[in-house]
Every structure is written in C-alpha cells, then in structure tokens.
Amino acid sequence: MIGDQISKIQLFLLLLSPFQNTKKHIFTIKVKTYPFTGTLVRLYYNLKEVGIMIRDRGAMKWTAMMLPEHVMKLREFDWDQNKKVKPELDEQQLELIEETICEAMAENLDLCFTYFEWEDFHLLIGKVHYMDVYKKQIRIVDLHEDLHKINFCDLVDVKFL
C-alpha cells in the first residue's frame, strides 16, 4: 500500500519533470518511515510543503493474534523438525563395535562411546568396566571415576582414543 502511493507520487513527478527545469515549477519528495505511526511522505511544490501522511500501523501490522491451538501445533512442528533419528546399525558395524570393546577390555584402553538416548546423541569417554550380557548393558567408568550404564541397543559408535 505504501509502495503504491509512493510510486504514484513518483509517477506524478516524472510526468511533471519537463516542467521541473523552469523556475516556476520545482517538485521534490522526501519519505520518512516511523515504526508505529506509519510513513510520512512530503511533497514539495515550489518550495511549499504539501504533506501526505500514510497511516499503515507500521510494525503493529505484523503482530499475530494466535489461538492456543495454533501455538500448540507450531510448537509440535518445531519439535518434530529438531528431532533426531537413531541410525540403524547393520551386522558389520555391530561386529566392529564388539571387537573394539573386547580389545579395549583386554588392554585396558580408553574408548569414546557415542550413544543415542532421549532423542539426542551423547559422547562418553572412559574404560569398559563390565559387559552384562543378560541385561544387555555396558558399564563404563569415565575419567572422573563415575559409573555409567549404557544399553547395547543405544550404542551408535565406539572408537579408540
């Protein structure tokens, strides 16, 4: 709306531009935008101001009125967009992880574990303390001597340090 009115004024000035060089007709335009009141367009004709105020509510025009259902759906959409998916491991990757863990247990080496928990990836650095085959868990002692239990199915990757 503002652009249309300003372009109409500019078109008007272009039509009168052949007369602008004469001393009788001098046209100038100044545009100033205010955030809440609108845009002030000043048209000067023969050094006399002809003020035109365009009221368009400014920034208030774009504030949204949202229903609670809309807000809830937008939050769900945003949550689904940021959601991470656990990758599926094939048999070769599982065997490689198992070999790495067994070798680290035999030589008492530190490992870097990447596991998927609560819809996010986590890193843990430590030594394998015990592998519980019945519960399908690995017990890991980290660098601060804290004990962590990670399920086999949550492991994504295991690497030597």
Results as ranks from 00 to 15, higher is better:
101 I>C: 01
68 P>Y: 02
128 V>R: 01
83 K>R: 07
18 P>R: 01
67 L>D: 12
6 I>V: 08
121 F>Y: 07
108 N>G: 03
81 Q>K: 08
12 F>T: 03
130 Y>G: 04
101 I>K: 01
104 A>P: 00
94 L>F: 13
84 K>E: 11
7 S>H: 05
115 Y>I: 06
65 M>C: 11
103 E>L: 08
73 K>S: 04
120 D>A: 14
96 L>P: 08
132 D>H: 00
11 L>E: 13
60 M>K: 09
10 Q>L: 09
53 M>C: 14
9 I>T: 03
39 T>W: 00
143 L>F: 05
124 L>N: 01
24 K>F: 11
127 K>Y: 04
44 Y>F: 13
110 D>W: 13
34 Y>K: 11
105 M>H: 06
31 V>E: 05
135 K>I: 01
62 W>R: 15
36 F>A: 12
120 D>Y: 11
130 Y>R: 11
103 E>N: 07
64 A>R: 09
6 I>D: 03
137 Q>Y: 03
92 Q>P: 03
119 E>Y: 03
92 Q>K: 15
91 E>P: 13
112 C>V: 15
65 M>N: 12
141 V>Q: 04
111 L>Y: 00
115 Y>K: 04
74 L>I: 06
92 Q>W: 14
142 D>F: 04
143 L>H: 05
70 H>I: 09
42 R>G: 09
72 M>I: 10
119 E>C: 02
49 E>W: 08
10 Q>H: 07
99 E>G: 07
10 Q>C: 07
32 K>L: 11
66 M>T: 10
112 C>R: 14
113 F>G: 00
66 M>S: 09
51 G>N: 13
108 N>E: 13
16 L>N: 08
140 I>N: 00
12 F>A: 09
80 D>P: 14
22 T>W: 08
15 L>H: 08
7 S>W: 03
86 K>L: 02
143 L>R: 08
28 T>P: 13
64 A>K: 11
130 Y>K: 10
141 V>P: 00
50 V>S: 12
28 T>E: 15
70 H>Y: 11
58 G>Q: 03
23 K>Q: 07
29 I>Y: 04
83 K>C: 09
120 D>S: 12
49 E>N: 09
126 G>L: 00
115 Y>M: 06
59 A>E: 11
20 Q>A: 11
71 V>R: 07
13 L>W: 02
82 N>C: 13
117 E>T: 12
26 I>D: 10
86 K>C: 03
121 F>N: 02
22 T>E: 10
58 G>W: 01
32 K>M: 10
16 L>F: 09
63 T>G: 12
33 T>L: 07
26 I>E: 10
101 I>D: 01
74 L>W: 05
53 M>L: 15
130 Y>S: 06
16 L>H: 08
68 P>M: 02
